[in-house]
Computed example of a mutant assay.
Amino acid sequence: MEIERTRIDIDHCAKTYADGTRGLQPTSLVVEPGEVLALLGPSGCGKTTLLRLIAGLESPDAGSRIRFGDTDVTQLPIEQRNVGMVFQHYALFPQMSVQANIGYGLRIRGTPEAERQRVVGELIDLVRLNGLEKKRPNELSGGQRQRVALARAVAARPRVLLLDEPLTALDAKLKESLRDELAELLRRLHITAVHVTHDQQEALAIADRLAVMRAGRIVQVGDGESLYRTPAHHFVASFLGRVNRLGASAGGMVELGGMALHCPAARATVLVRPEDIQIGPSGPDWGSARVRRRNFLGDRVQLTLDVQGQGALLADVDRDHPAREGETVGIRIAPAHLMPMMEDETP
């Protein structure tokens, strides 16, 4: 099934509500044709507002522009934008079969029955629902219902697919398995998609790029690995994973348990992730730390360390690491793993 790959251009798009509340600050963003882009951030950051503006469910402020390819859709209502949407609870019709749910949009558009059956059949093959065509939603697993919702959303060949927190209502175990399945399905569809979520792992697993949002603004855009390893903002670093905050001297030196590390850039605030802290035997090339607490987390051990010059730091080590509470251990950090931050970037 061929689906058009559409570029989305968002140009100085903003939203102010009737009471004066700014739901979205002026925002510019490009979603490339066939790309899956995640809008990631905490509740109230503006990600759902931006998704609704793309869909045509909200009207933007004057001066905003939204384009799908060469078409300016800024003033078009949702029914004229040709978008597909997948919601948190999938919104399937409980009385309809799988094939009727998938073909519903085609039927109300007046698509001839033969064409409708052909498209529905292609989609059932694509999302691996063969043999379930006559089943109703309450007879399906969570993953199967998700596949029906996706197939229904793309049946009419939308230019853009919008996903509004599609995994939020699921328990942690099911969410993890469906997250990977959703990522695979989106790759197979080759459709331009915008995916709203507050779940960092979900965004990293599914999206080609992430736009991290805070207080109505996009803070940083990039692929997941780049944002995780080289965040440009303290908020991005802390939202995408756990970080330790280290104090540095004016010359960019970081004191670490009796040894000094040179920070790649002279900053008063330096961040480091727990997995980038090495713990080993004390030695001449190591600082010194005392293990305050040891937490076994199954796949790893998390150590809480008291470190001279820095206070408490978290370090992730192998689950068989021998360090125990009350012991003194060696500590070191490769300078390349230090993430310098400007003071005004700290929330």
Results as ranks from 00 to 15, higher is better:
E255F: 01
K175Y: 00
V221E: 09
A205G: 01
A172S: 11
V270Q: 07
V254L: 10
A260W: 11
L167T: 08
V194Q: 13
V272Y: 02
H195G: 03
E184G: 10
D171K: 01
R187K: 15
D164C: 06
L189N: 04
L167A: 04
A169F: 03
L182T: 07
I218H: 04
Q220P: 11
R209Q: 10
Q200C: 05
L204W: 03
V270E: 04
R188I: 06
V221L: 12
A153L: 10
P166N: 07
A260Y: 00
A237T: 10
R179H: 07
A203W: 00
S177H: 12
R267F: 08
T197V: 08
A265W: 00
A203H: 02
L162H: 06
T230Y: 14
L256Q: 10
N244R: 06
L204R: 01
E255Y: 00
A232Y: 03
E165P: 01
S226I: 02
A149L: 07
A268K: 11
E255K: 02
L189H: 00
V194P: 15
T168Q: 13
H198N: 11
P166C: 09
G258M: 03
V154K: 02
M213H: 04
M259I: 13
L204C: 00
N244Q: 02
E255H: 09
L240D: 02
A149T: 08
H262N: 14
P166T: 01
G224Q: 00
L189Y: 10
A207W: 03
C263A: 15
R273D: 14
G143P: 08
Q220F: 09
A205P: 06
L170G: 03
I191A: 05
A215S: 08
T168V: 15
D180W: 03
G143Q: 01
A237D: 11
L182R: 08
R152H: 05
T269H: 14
L204I: 07
L182S: 05
L227H: 12
S177D: 07
H234N: 13
A156W: 08
S177G: 03
S226K: 09
I277N: 10
S226C: 05
E202Y: 01
A153Y: 03
Q200L: 07
V254Q: 01
V148K: 11
A260R: 15
K175V: 07
A156N: 12
L210P: 10
R159M: 14
H195I: 01
V160H: 14
A172P: 01
A260S: 13
K173H: 02
R159D: 14
L210S: 10
D223V: 13
Q220R: 07
A155L: 12
G247D: 15
A153P: 09
E181S: 05
L189A: 06
R267M: 05
H195P: 02
